[in-house]
């Protein structure tokens, strides 16, 4: 499990040392025949919790909705945005989040 990390330039506070619940992206299909739509994200410690919470938060428990939850860091993304010259380790992630990469402890102070 990855430790929380700082974004570049911000100070690391002592309470961040505890693990944060991982981030999950939520996709909901509100009606049969439609596609799943991305709704947002939430923090949950495991998949069962993520699904239950997604139901509570993103569907207000409407019957018949289908919910997908995926660990945010596991989504592989390709964005047609500007290609930067320098190496961007977040290039294939959905967005930059401090917890998406676990660094070895020796360099885990960034």
């Amino acid at each position: 499990m990855s430790d929380t990390q700082k974004t570049e330039g911000s100070a690391r506070a002592p309470t961040e040392a505890r693990g944060e619940w991982p981030l999950w992206e939520v996709f909901v299909r509100s009606k049969a025949g439609l596609d799943h739509k991305h709704c947002g994200s939430l923090h949950a410690s495991d998949a069962a919790m993520a699904i239950q919470m997604a139901r509570d938060v993103y569907t207000r428990r409407q019957e018949g909705t289908s919910i997908w939850v995926v660990r945010s860091e596991q989504i592989v993304a390709s964005d047609p945005a500007e290609k930067d010259a320098y190496f961007d380790p977040m290039a294939d992630k959905v967005y930059r989040h401090p917890t998406f990469y676990a660094l070895p402890k020796s360099v885990d102070h960034m």
């Binding site: 619940w21 939430l42 949950a44 239950q52 919470m53 509570d56 938060v57």
Partner: peptide
Amino acid sequence: PVLEEDIALTN
């Protein structure tokens, strides 16, 4: 303890 649970318990 966490926002998601606040919502769950209130629900």
